[in-house]
């Protein structure tokens, strides 16, 4: 009854369309349980939080082996720094999948789109699988396609704000116009918001703060997974558009058929 194509990023297929971030969890077991409950097959980790020689608290130890590790460049303030962090991640054994996060504003944490494009160009040319995080903007997204990005990840609202899809109309334009998977990232604070992004036709959703700071993170992680699936099904069903007024069947053109009777 429900036939979906798997999500394909850089030639790799994923059955889950939910990506989980690993920051802000109160302990590693909550994190591990949330990964399992969410069914996520791609998990982001900030390289700045990876300490390879502390075994007990090394975050990588709590991520199952079958998960695709997406290292993010948190802390990078420009393209050069993002490139260095990505290279260091790869050299540290974190693999070639990288979420480019270039942020030069510590108050709003809004990404710098121009620097993100530059970093994407360099890293994609070096063979990285690049998932750039941006403020939703059509020109930036087009430049990212040219630069060799594997997805485009527009923000729904400010990181950690739980405000949902404040940038909805701009994201919709990216979904309509860009031939890469659009992964909605940041600001998604409730399963209903994740479902809404999927109903719009987003390829996937990434969440972190809402789950990490919930009283029962694993329970909310599961709720997100279900919402993403529900939203995806609704999108594929050809969900009827919302209207603001009641819709009679054919009030404007009914006269055409009156004469025929």
């Amino acid at each position: 009854m429900f036939n979906d194509m798997p999500l394909v990023i850089a030639g790799k297929t994923f059955n889950s369309r939910f990506l989980l971030g690993t920051g802000k969890f109160k302990n590693k077991s909550d994190l591990a349980e949330s990964i399992v409950a969410s069914g996520a097959e791609i998990v982001t980790v900030a390289l700045r939080r990876v300490d390879l020689d502390r075994h007990e608290d090394n975050i990588l130890k709590h991520i199952p082996k079958n998960i695709t590790l997406l290292t993010n460049t948190s802390g990078a303030r420009n393209a050069q720094e993002a490139v260095r962090i990505a290279r260091l991640a790869k050299a540290s054994g974190c693999g070639p999948w990288v979420k480019i996060e270039v942020i030069n504003d510590s108050k709003y944490l809004l990404p710098d789109n121009q620097e993100t494009v530059k970093a994407t160009q360099i890293l994609a040319a070096e063979g990285f699988v690049v998932l750039p995080y941006i403020s939703p903007d059509l020109y930036t997204a087009r430049a990212l396609v040219k630069a060799g990005a594997a997805t485009v990840m527009p923000l729904g609202s400010l990181i950690g704000s739980n405000q949902g899809l404040k940038t909805k109309e701009l994201i919709q334009i990216l979904i309509n116009e860009i031939d890469l998977p659009i992964v909605v990232d940041a600001g998604i604070g409730a399963p209903s918001q994740a479902a809404e992004a999927m109903e719009m036709g987003a390829a996937a959703v990434l969440a972190n703060t809402a789950i990490a700071t919930a009283e029962q993170p694993a329970v909310l992680a599961r709720a997100f997974a279900l919402a993403v699936e529900a939203g995806r099904m609704a999108y594929l069903s050809g969900l009827p558009r919302q209207t603001s007024v009641a819709n009679a069947s054919s009030p404007l053109t009914g006269f055409l058929y009156d004469n025929a009777q």
Partner: peptide, 18 residues
């Protein structure tokens, strides 16, 4: 840990600064 906090030892990985 007892108080439900995650202690963070590493919040930065040194890269060449320029």
């Amino acid at each position: 840990k007892k108080r439900n906090f995650d202690p963070i030892f590493t919040d930065w990985r040194r890269i060449e600064n320029c």
